[in-house]
Nucleic acid binder design. Structure first.
Lengths: 240, 240
DNA sequence: ACCGCATTACTGTGATCACATTGTGAGGCG
DNA sequence: CGCCTCACAATGTGATCACAGTAATGCGGT
């Protein structure tokens, strides 16, 4: 598990650290895992442990962790310990409001750059999302949902809004895995179709409304699940 | 610890790294300098240079720089070079919209936690700001303006909105120094008084409107100044 | 058997070194 | 005289080591 022979990493399929730094690969991998809910909230992450599990030295793991802390994806306890944030109902509500404020703004800014062709592409993504629901493929469903939103927001140029929105999604990520069982009952795809229709009919306000309601619908059921998880997890991680 | 004479840094007066890490001191110092506009946009910052100027090793400087990059306070060029961001009119407009969206939301969330006593404190800050204008003390003026806003926003609990707002202020910081000469013509203190009045009359919408207009007023004149600075700076930093 | 304390293992922080890449300058060739 | 090329300096990245604080553990005392 050591990097003695150069750029080959053990057990993975990344071809080469060419053009990208090792730290960035670690960061990307961690970021993905966090967004997919691979880590349990409250779980502690150590520099050496992460470095070992990825076959690198401490340095890349260290910088990746600190970067994710700076982006609020991970929590830095006063003990200098880095953990996956534990979500509370209030924080989730705050994240929802922030998402609405920023993503509605991003959608409005993207609106002038949309056209029928783009609406088609968005619709295609939404159809794939519907298919993911049919197939009960939760990971694909999340991925396509993310693609739908970001494809829209990226339509507007600028490097201010997108990083902040990504940070919000990153903060929500660790708790999104709680929605796995409730996949069937989701009805937010309606909002996506409303958004596409709004683009086609050149109605910016309707687009903004669709995005806002999509966010609120999707986030609405989470606090209860968080309460559940906190209640059931109390016996397990009460040690911390 | 062998930087000639131990843990003393050269030329500064920080007493001791007690309770706080060295990296955090470097970060705080850099952050303050950026907010105060001590660095010229486009200026490159090297790890070793920063480390030397602060009398530390590369490591704290390195992590502080990367953290500020993660917070969008500094720019990471594809050359892996860290520079003070160069602002464009479009980006400034984007920052303004993001500020309005987030800070209005923060003000609304803070509103229920406000009372007459808090309004008095806010008014006191605003009076100090007025005094700073009279005294032509630009630095104090900026500091009191920041205090006014953050005092209000911090009234609401939560750890989501504040870091994002701070990041926005950090991104604006490097260009705020352009407003030094135009201090006398500012009229945004009216908005602050409107905000205080809105709190006293328990009018949340009026508070939100006052904050929004305060932001727009304060940011409105900047793009022209940015254009000026770009035009005059072209002969100097055209080398980049 | 339980509680208090000292020892041990572990973690983050800071420093130093080695290397690859990039930027810069001088010198040679057309 | 201008452009290209090569060498040198500087920078970021990654690795390793040393130290300090903290949590976990084992031991002895009551």
């Amino acid at each position: 598990m050591q990097s003695d022979d150069g750029d080959e990493d053990t057990g993975h399929d990344e071809p080469a650290p060419k053009g990208t730094t090792l730290q960035e690969r670690v960061y990307a991998e961690l970021r993905e895992a966090i967004m997919l809910g691979r880590f349990r909230p409250g779980e502690a992450m150590t520099i050496r442990g992460l470095a070992d599990s990825l076959g690198t030295s401490m340095m890349p793991a260290r910088e990746a962790l600190r970067r994710l802390v700076a982006e609020r994806a991970l929590d830095l306890l006063p003990n200098r310990r880095v953990t996956v944030p534990t979500m509370t109902g209030e924080m989730f509500e705050e994240l929802t409001e922030a998402r609405v404020a920023l993503e509605v703004l991003a959608a409005r800014r993207a609106f002038p750059a949309t056209d029928p062709a783009f609406a088609d592409r968005l619709e295609a993504i939404d159809l794939e999302q519907d298919a993911a629901i049919e197939a009960r493929d939760w990971a694909l469903y999340q991925e396509r949902n993310r693609a739908f939103h970001f494809e829209l927001y990226e339509r507007a140029p600028g490097r201010v809004l997108m990083p902040m929105i990504e940070s919000l999604w990153l903060q929500i990520g660790p708790f999104l895995y709680l929605t796995r069982e409730s996949l069937g009952r989701t009805y937010m795809e309606d909002r996506h179709k409303e958004a596409v229709a709004a683009i086609r009919s050149r109605d910016e306000d309707a687009l903004a409304l669709a995005i806002e309601q999509d966010i609120r619908d999707g986030m609405g059921g989470l606090p209860a699940l968080i309460a559940d998880q906190n209640a059931e997890g109390k016996s397990v991680e009460a040690v911390g």
